[in-house]
Write a protein that binds this DNA or RNA. Structure first.
Length: 277
DNA sequence: ACGAGAACCTGTTTGC
DNA sequence: TGCAAACAGGTTCTCG
């Protein structure tokens, strides 16, 4: 489920359950996800108080009162589910981590494909962590403007689609929101990245900020499984202009073919060849 | 150094 | 109906 708006939705859902609460029990139910858990995973978390939840790109950051930080990535299929009032069912096959709080909440981390990961860092060295260090600017930060994006694209010979999928260019976009932002900005996914300068870059930044903010307000996008930690669906998927809409009419013009699909870097791209140049 | 493709997994949908 | 192939919200390693 997870691009920036989905991870932000998870953060907002988990914050009231975790912030200020103590983890009375942490159960690690397998040795690895995409990578091994840190050796001291349970020891670093169990019995500790959560201070606050943050997010960087698609990483959920759980800051502990000890100063350590749990870094969680949801991969392609990771999700959290919260049960309160002692109503948690037994963990299922793909519930790889169980957290219990002193207030009686139970959290399952569920991830069938196991592309997710969990790691620990020291809070004061978080920006130096290998996973965090390589990430580009946060798109919703006011400092991220057309000039900032243009500068990062100026020497990129790949396509604008590939450049935006690269977390080092700008943080948190994935296949859905790249397709949607390029549609809103009227830019072809096949355009060379270095040609996105000046007004084109400004339009693209505005489109990125708008689509992400709208998606967060909608509780993210729920494609196949549920996403909000309560089990409720997000509903931004109903607002997609192009993603997953191959063959449907373009919502913004009367072109013949409607929405087309092509494959770039092994991923589906959806776009309108008339509106996006 | 950069960019494209493969690999990592499981589950679901599509096509013959 | 049944089986195989294709496809899925991501990242990271390898190869050219």
């Amino acid at each position: 489920m997870p691009e920036l708006p989905e991870v932000e939705t998870v953060r907002l859902g988990l914050a009231p359950v975790l912030e200020g609460h103590t983890l009375t029990r942490v159960e690690q139910r397998r040795a690895d996800l995409r990578r091994p858990f840190p050796d001291d995973f349970v020891q670093a978390l169990q019995g500790q108080k959560v201070e606050r939840l943050a997010r960087r790109a698609k990483y959920l950051l759980i800051h502990l009162a000890t100063g350590r930080v749990l870094i969680v990535h949801l991969g392609m299929s990771g999700s959290f589910r919260v049960h309160t009032n002692g109503e948690a069912p037994p963990p299922g096959k793909h519930d790889h981590v169980v957290f219990e709080t002193a207030a009686g909440a139970t959290l399952f981390y569920h991830d069938p494909r196991r592309f997710g990961s969990m790691d620990l860092a020291d809070g004061d060295a978080l920006e130096d962590h290998p996973l965090i260090r390589v990430i580009g600017p946060e798109p919703l930060n006011p400092a991220f403007d057309g000039a900032a994006l243009a500068a990062r694209l100026a020497d990129r010979k790949t396509t604008i689609k590939a450049a935006l999928m690269d977390q080092g260019t700008v943080a948190g976009l994935g296949n859905i929101y790249v397709c949607e932002a390029l549609f809103r900005a009227g830019l072809s996914p096949k355009r060379k990245a270095y040609t996105v300068q000046g007004d084109r870059a400004a339009r693209l930044v505005a489109a990125i900020k708008d689509v992400l903010a709208e998606a967060i307000r909608s509780g993210g996008s729920s494609l196949r499984d549920h996403k909000q930690v309560s089990g409720e669906m997000g509903y931004f998927q109903h607002a997609f202009a192009v993603y997953g809409r191959e063959g449907e009419p373009c919502p913004d013009c009367t072109c013949d073919g409607g929405i087309r699909r092509l494959v770039q870097q092994g991923r589906s791209t959806f776009y309108c060849a008339t509106r996006q140049r």
